[in-house]
Write a protein that binds this DNA or RNA. Structure first.
Lengths: 145, 145
DNA sequence: CTAACTGCAAAAACTTTGCACTTTT
DNA sequence: AAAAGTGCAAAGTTTTTGCAGTTAG
C-alpha cells in the first residue's frame, strides 16, 4: 500500500500531465481514493465526498472515475451491477469477493507476465486490463452460515 | 468442446438429480446451451428460444440460468450489465473480451490448482467461482482502429 | 476568453421480484 | 393434489447521457 500523500501526488501529476483540470471536486475525489484502504464503490465515494461538496453529483464521480480508469490509475472491480475501484494498487492483482457479504480482499497471487504474453500471442488480443476475481465465501461467512 | 448431445444429457441428468422439473422451456434452454459454440448472453438465448416458445419470458431464462449457475454447470462471464454464459466449459478458464466489439474468446491459460489452494489458505476464503477476464483489443479491432 | 467540468434530471440496460395461473411429478 | 415453474408487468440498480450553467487555466 503506497503512502496516501505520495499516491495523491501521483494521481494529481497524472491528471496535470494530460491537461485535465483540477477542480475542487475532482481533487477531493482523488484525495479520497488515495486515502482509501479498501475498494470503495462509486456510491461510497459519492457518499463521502458529499460531506465537503453537498452539490456533488454521482455523474461527476463516474466521469472522473472513467478518466482515471482510462489513465490506468484505478483498477475497476466488477461485481454484478456494482463496480468497486482500487486506486492504490492499479497493478493487476486478484481480488477475492465474498458471495455472501460482498467483502473484497486483495489476493497475493502474482500474475505471470510470460503467461500473459503467451495468451496475447495465441489469441491475437492486446490485453489492456486483466481482471482476476475469485468469488467465494470469506472465513466469517463460512462460519456464520 | 464437448459433444452437444453428451453435454445435453449431462445437464439434464444434473437437473434430474436435484429434482428440478424438466419443463419444455427449460429443456429447450438446456438444448441451446449445449449446442452453443460461443458465450451467449441471456438476451441471445431468450431471442433464440422464442422461435419455439413465443410465450417464453426473460424472467424464466434468468431463473433457469441462475439454477444452472448454482449447480456449477454454467460459468458466468460478467460484462458491465450484460452477463454471458459458458455452459460447455464450466471448468474455470480465462476469457478475453474485446473492449471495442465485446467479442468473447476462450483463453487457453491454465489456472494452477496449487496457486488457488495457496490463495485459499492465505485469504481464508473458500473459493467457489474463479473469474479470469482479460479485457483488451481483439486483432480485428486493433487493425480497424 | 473558451474549453472543460459540474450537476440535474431523464434515459438506458440488465436483472429481479411478486403474483396469479399452469404444469410437472 | 401439491410443489414447482411460467410469464407478465413493475420495480430495482448502477451507469450513462444531454444540456444549461459554471469555472479553471
Amino acid at each position: 500500500m503506497p503512502d496516501p500523500i505520495v499516491r495523491f501526488d501521483e494521481l494529481i501529476t497524472a491528471l496535470k500531465q494530460r491537461n485535465f483540470r483540477l477542480t475542487p471536486q475532482r481533487v477531493e475525489l482523488v484525495r479520497l481514493i488515495a486515502a482509501s484502504e479498501g475498494h470503495p464503490s462509486a456510491a461510497q465515494l459519492y457518499a463521502k465526498i458529499r460531506f465537503r461538496f453537498p452539490t456533488m453529483s454521482q455523474a461527476t464521480v463516474y466521469k472522473t472515475l472513467t478518466l482515471l480508469k482510462e489513465m490506468n490509475q484505478v483498477l475497476e472491480i466488477d461485481l454484478r451491477d456494482d463496480s468497486h475501484y482500487d486506486g492504490n494498487r492499479p497493478h493487476p492483482h486478484p481480488h477475492l469477493i465474498c458471495l455472501q457479504c460482498n467483502k473484497i480482499v486483495d489476493g497475493d497471487m502474482d500474475l505471470d507476465p510470460s503467461s500473459i504474453r503467451k495468451l496475447e500471442k495465441t489469441s491475437g488480443f492486446q490485453i489492456v486490463r486483466p481482471q482476476i476475481t475469485f468469488y467465494g465465501l470469506c472465513s466469517d461467512c463460512r462460519q456464520g452460515g
